[in-house]
């Protein structure tokens, strides 16, 4: 536990979801073609930032945003500064290019360790580009702290623990976690703030720390393409077919039949 609450927020630059219909996949590399698609901060990462800033406003402390990405990802660091974080760090190095979720989580964990002790690491639950939702749990493992994913509400917080609601199918779980921990949030948790005009202008007068792999002491063989065990074999849209069944009979028989089928499916 540190004296002042230390909150870290992981943010990522992704293709603007407004342009989803224009996004295509490169058939050879199986990666998203990003040319001509504006880049924005991953929407859920803004929820993560908002929650961190609300906690800081309530309990005091310090919020640091960290992004791993190409030099252009400086923009999301500026966005975070405009929203009100105390510091923004851009982890950018050619060696990191091609990192999968495991390598990304490893690199982020090393950057977070360099920052020193922390109480909470907030992440968006998943990004709109990859949608794997793997980085937050992997990051927690590297940091050797507990994690909770799909957090939709923070019920209480003190210096030692958090009590949260975690979304599950058809409901939610109430969980208590000891700090430090990694918390991955969903969009229900809050409505991210818009920066003010003054905050926007001021964020460009602030410094963004730029780190390379040598600054955080990562093993270069554990990041980038070489350090990434994931191989994308194919990317395709799964074909979804409705399971049609036709029942012939009287109305009363049909009603009974439908009720039976719904019971079988566990719907009623």
């Amino acid at each position: 536990m540190t004296e002042e609450l230390q909150i870290i927020v992981c943010i990522k630059q992704v293709p603007d979801p407004h342009y989803l219909s224009k996004i295509t996949i490169d058939p050879v590399t199986k990666t998203i073609r990003r040319e001509g698609i504006p880049a924005v901060m991953n929407p859920l990462d803004r929820n993560a930032l908002e929650e961190a800033l609300r906690i800081k406003e309530q309990l005091g402390g310090r919020v640091v945003a960290i992004s791993m990405g190409p030099p252009q990802a400086e923009r999301v660091c500026r966005d975070a500064l405009a929203m009100g974080v105390d510091e923004a760090i851009l982890l950018s190095d050619r060696v990191l290019a091609g990192s999968d979720t495991l390598a990304t989580a490893y690199a982020l964990s090393m950057a977070i360790k360099k920052l020193g002790s922390f109480d909470i690491v907030f992440c968006g639950n998943e990004t709109v580009d990859g949608s794997t939702a793997q980085v937050p749990p992997q990051l927690a493992e590297f940091l050797k702290v507990p994690h909770i994913t799909r957090v939709r509400k923070i019920l209480s917080i003190n210096r030692n623990e958090l009590i949260v609601e975690r979304t599950i199918e058809y409901g939610y779980m109430k969980l208590r976690v000891k700090l430090p921990a990694v918390i991955a949030v969903t969009k229900e948790i809050n409505e991210p703030r818009l920066p003010t005009v003054s905050a926007i202008l001021k964020c460009y007068r602030k410094e963004i720390k730029k780190w390379t792999v040598s600054d955080i002491g990562v093993n270069p063989r554990q990041v980038g393409l070489e350090g990434s065990p994931t191989r994308v074999i194919d990317v395709f849209s799964p074909e979804v077919k409705r399971k049609r069944k036709i029942f012939e009979g009287t109305t009363d028989e049909a009603v009974e039949w439908i009720i039976e089928k719904l019971h079988e499916a566990g719907i009623i």
Partner: peptide, 14 residues
């Protein structure tokens, strides 16, 4: 400028 772009994006989102 980057500042003007961020102002535009913020106004657009608002």
């Amino acid at each position: 400028t980057p500042e003007q772009e961020m102002l535009r994006d913020t106004a657009r989102e608002f």
